[in-house]
Design a protein around this nucleic acid. Structure first.
Length: 130
RNA sequence: CAGGUCGAUUGGAUGUCCGCUGGUCACUUCGGUGACGAGAGGAAAGUCCGGGCUCCACAGAACAGGAUGGUCGGUAACGCCGACCGGUCGAAAGAUCAGGGCAAGUGCAACAGAAAGUAAACCGCCAAAAUCCGACUCGUCGGAAUGGUAAGGGUGAAACGGUGAGGUAAGAGCUCACCGGCGAUUGGGGUGACCCGAUCGGCCAUGUAAACCCCAUCCGGAGCAAGGUCAAACAGGGAGCAGUCGUUGUUCGCGGCAUGAUGACUUCCGGGUAGGCUGCUGGAGAUGACGAGCAAUUGUCAUCCUAGAUAAAUGGACAUCGAGUGGUUUUCGAAUCACUCACAGAACCCGGCUUAUAGAUCGACCUGAAUG
RNA sequence: GCGGGUGUAGCUCAGUGGCUAGAGCGUCACGUUGCCAACGUGAAUGUCGAGGGUUCGAAUCCCUUCACCCGCU
């Protein structure tokens, strides 16, 4: 899929994750979110210049094995799609109720939702600025 | 070969690319980078028991409360395991049992039934003895009241041993024989639960302790979010009285100086939040050999090191093989296409129990058939 | 990770081992009314979360299991 593209940073270390309770609170208190059939994404700006990912998988999703599969799938989608995801934002992602696990769909959904969310923010701030 | 019983093991394999978390080594601009090697389970689960470890409490003992419950053994310990004993089920291999005590005391046993525990008379059976009435062939018959009777019927989950004989008005352990069960004494075997007997006794004792209770044995409380340690910011505590500033008391008043009290800043100390580090993985450890033991288990020796995350790593994509299901072709050997690959994810560590689990493999035993 | 609690009619709850498991609200039907509400009469409704065990008999006692809720950083 990414064979013909220039090499992108596909690592996913601790600095690329939302870790602190404070950061999660900031994202949840912000008003920016987007959703489709698969995922719900909430976002908030950070000052780091890179995108960060946080996961919120509740016990209702399934047992520990199912929850871990979701986390890995979303992380993998984030890692492989970093070139297409807007920088300078924290995203908290959770699976939508009733969604089935499918890696390709999740990857497409994650990039689309993150870009839509940032677009919304830009439109809104442009409107309030003018 | 068919049917069955019990137990054990395993739980996809290989390769390429891209990632994640520790470890060791090297480099480093101290942010990291590179190389090498490691990285989920039999249940990691439920949290139902038992321990280690840590902190708290504590003179000892008893009570209360809780748990366990055949015997002997194993173990660090257990509610676990092994062997054996007994009851029940099965033709057998085997399975299963909270398996101490209702003959210490108290309670409960609905409905039905006469009666649910020192018995009791609804139907039935009887009228010998004692009472009354009637009949007549005058000492028998019939009846009443009353009484006797637990053999039979019926009720119930359960009705006060069973069979036979004697006995009687009818009956009854009322008496006797045998059988079952109980108690006392006693012989033999076994460490013991218990087993095999002998003598005597009263004729017989309901069920329920996962009802209260009694007996025996065991148990201090909390848990790694324990505990230890380093320690921002804000607020506050203590010490010091050294320095600066402010307020105020001390001489009749004012001002200055001195001195006492107090507040702020500065100095030092302790507690301690966010957060970090530690506890944190080498242990009742794994494998093998030899020995003890029926076994559970255990002794000695040798070899090995095998996860340590913390918004929480152990993954994703592709290819080949393997297994299963379905379709097509078929020279019945197979070929080919599609789909699927159990239950489930460490969180301080062990020993058990319980529950979930696609498929594959192995062993022991029982019954039946055939052959020898 | 640790500790504690609750499951009974559609909903909220009672229920001493023993009759067909009850109450209130709700639902349905009929009556009343010109119509509705209220009222009256009657009716339907349960795997007592699930599976075993003890007992003659279990919603109740015991064991296992499932789901949900609460607390501890």
């Amino acid at each position: 899929m990414n064979v013909n593209r220039p090499p992108v940073n596909r690592s996913f270390g601790k600095q690329d994750r939302v870790v602190k309770q404070r950061d999660f609170d900031r994202v949840h208190q912000g008003k920016w979110f987007a959703a489709d059939r698969w995922l719900v994404v909430k976002g908030s700006e950070n000052e780091l210049g890179i995108p960060r990912l946080g996961l919120s998988i509740s016990k209702r999703v399934g047992n520990a094995v199912v929850r871990n599969r979701w986390k890995r799938a979303i992380r993998e989608a984030f890692r492989n799609g970093r070139g297409d995801i807007p920088a300078g934002w924290d995203f908290v992602v959770r699976p939508r109720k009733g969604a089935r696990l499918n890696g390709l769909e999740i990857a497409r959904s994650l990039t689309n939702l993150s870009r839509r969310l940032v677009r919304q923010h830009q439109r809104s701030s442009a409107r309030s600025g003018s």
